[in-house]
């Protein structure tokens, strides 16, 4: 029977209460939301917090919607909520693509967006999706809020910019009128971590790529991104050849490790092929949304 080691349990009533609890209990306390990463780690003694601070009651962190020219995703938004939201699907199909292949429907009822990002697993899908759309993480601490670009949020495996005593409260994603996005993953079986996965967002302007965002996960891409491939694409006409070359660059720049999910060469091949595919799909969706833009979106 797998049971976590003993710990104290506190239930936060508000964000400020959660911060006060973090302050009171110090670095051996951990925030818990969905718990689908933390509890398995606690059962295996890979994590052994002395105090768990439950933030599931903080409705203020469950906000999901458009505010001004941004999509705001509260840290406590469940995977299922992100997947079910039509506004998210309209502006950022990349998130719906990704959520369909994250864990399974029952786990998605419980797991949260903020928890996934803070877990900072090197194979996490949402980390690549948020990197592709260049989100901003909003972190709250005792001295107020600060913002961190998502590509500076992950400092390494299981390590983020969230300091002890701080809480990730939401993600802000700039709306890019007329942009298209997509995500694709290769997994061994339903609900598994990816062998490799890629996400992309493209904004086209005057027949050329004005902005490209590419996210990669499970293949050792620094900050879950592919800046070399993005740079190559910017200013070019979209097309099969350009997308294949971007895939080649992204595959070359990443640093996959061999494990039970496959050897390095296979993962590198997947990285390139998946980048090519998501760029193609993102471009198609961007073309499909060109009418939106003319309609004054």
């Amino acid at each position: 029977m797998q049971v976590p080691a003993r710990f104290e349990y506190e239930r936060a009533q508000s964000v400020s209460h959660a911060l006060a609890l973090l302050d009171r209990h110090g670095p051996e306390s951990r925030v818990i939301a969905g718990g689908h990463s933390l509890l398995p780690m606690m059962k295996l003694r890979l994590a052994r917090p002395e105090v768990l601070i439950d933030i599931n009651d903080l409705a203020e962190l469950s906000f999901l919607g458009v505010e001004g020219d941004e999509l705001v995703v509260g840290a406590l938004v469940r995977h299922a909520q992100l997947l079910a939201d039509p506004t998210v699907g309209r502006f950022f199909p990349i998130f719906h693509d990704a959520e369909r292949v994250i864990a399974d429907p029952v786990v998605r009822n419980r797991g949260t967006v903020g928890g996934s990002l803070c877990q900072a697993d090197p194979s996490e899908d949402l980390s690549a999706a948020f990197a592709a759309v260049r989100a901003t993480a909003v972190i709250q601490g005792p001295d107020g809020e600060r913002e961190v670009p998502i590509r500076e949020f992950h400092r390494g495996p299981y390590e983020t910019a969230v300091e002890p005593g701080e809480l990730l409260t939401r993600l802000r994603v700039p709306l890019r009128p007329g942009a298209g996005s997509a995500y694709e993953k290769v997994e061994r079986r339903v609900g598994d971590w990816p062998v490799a996965a890629a996400g992309a967002q493209l904004r086209l302007d005057g027949g050329v790529i004005a902005e490209a965002g590419i996210g990669l996960t499970a293949v050792g891409a620094e900050h879950f991104a592919a800046p070399g491939a993005e740079e190559y694409l910017t200013g070019r006409a979209p097309g099969e050849e350009a997308f294949a070359e971007a895939g080649r660059i992204a595959a070359e720049d990443c640093n996959p490790q061999a494990d039970q999910r496959g050897p390095v060469a296979y993962k590198r091949h997947l990285a390139g092929e998946l980048v090519r595919r998501v760029l193609t799909r993102a471009a198609g969706r961007a073309a499909g949304r060109a009418g939106d833009r003319q309609a004054g979106e």
């Binding site: 509890l39 768990l52 439950d54 029952v106 009822n109 419980r110």
Partner: peptide, 15 residues
């Protein structure tokens, strides 16, 4: 009213 895997939920979270 939402299905969850009860091996990965603490009883105290259900208070």
């Amino acid at each position: 009213a939402t299905p969850v895997k009860s091996c990965t939920v603490l009883a105290v979270m259900c208070d």
